[in-house]
C-alpha cells in the first residue's frame, strides 16, 4: 500500500516541478497547487496507512477498542491544506491583478521592479 502511494507521490512531484519550470505564471501556480497536494500525501503516508478504522472513540469509552488510524498526520494535513488553500487563493488573486496591471503572465517579461537596462552607478562626480 505504502509503495503504491509513494510512487503516486513521486508522480505528483514530477508534474509539479515540470509545471513550475514554465515561464507562465498560471502554470507555475498550478504546479504549486499540485506540489501542495503531493506534500500533503507525503505527510499522510509518513504517518503510516491504516485502512477503514477512523480514530474515533465510542462515547462510552475513554480509549479506542482496537488500534486505529493515526490521527496526528490527519491533523497536520488538515492544517497544511488550510494553509496551502488560502495561499493558493491569495496568489491567484495576485497573479490576476499582476496580469491586469503588467499586461503579461510571462515571468521573464515582468521587469518593472528590475528594469532591464539598469544604469550602472556613477563612476565620478
Amino acid at each position: 500500500m505504502e509503495t503504491g502511494v509513494a510512487i503516486l507521490i513521486g508522480l505528483f512531484f514530477t508534474v509539479a516541478v515540470y509545471l513550475m519550470l514554465s515561464k507562465h505564471l498560471v502554470r507555475i501556480l498550478l504546479g504549486i497547487a499540485i506540489l501542495g497536494n503531493s506534500v500533503n500525501m507525503l505527510i499522510f503516508t509518513n504517518g503510516r496507512l491504516t485502512r477503514e478504522i477512523p480514530p474515533l472513540i465510542p462515547s462510552h469509552l475513554y480509549t479506542p477498542e482496537t488500534a486505529t488510524a493515526n490521527p496526528l498526520p490527519q491533523a497536520l494535513v488538515l492544517t497544511a491544506i488550510v494553509i496551502s488553500f488560502s495561499f493558493f487563493a491569495f496568489l491567484l488573486v495576485l497573479a490576476f491583478r499582476a496580469y491586469q496591471e503588467l499586461g503579461t503572465d510571462e515571468v521573464n517579461k515582468m521587469r518593472v521592479a528590475e528594469p532591464e537596462n539598469d544604469p550602472t552607478p556613477p563612476q565620478g562626480y
Binding site: 488550510v82 488560502s86 487563493a89 488573486v93
Partner: peptide
C-alpha cells in the same frame, strides 16, 4: 475562514 475566503471570493467576483 468565512471572512478570509469570503473576501477573496468577493474580490474575484468584483473583478
Amino acid at each position: 475562514v468565512v471572512g478570509a475566503i469570503g473576501s477573496i471570493a468577493l474580490a474575484l467576483e468584483e473583478r
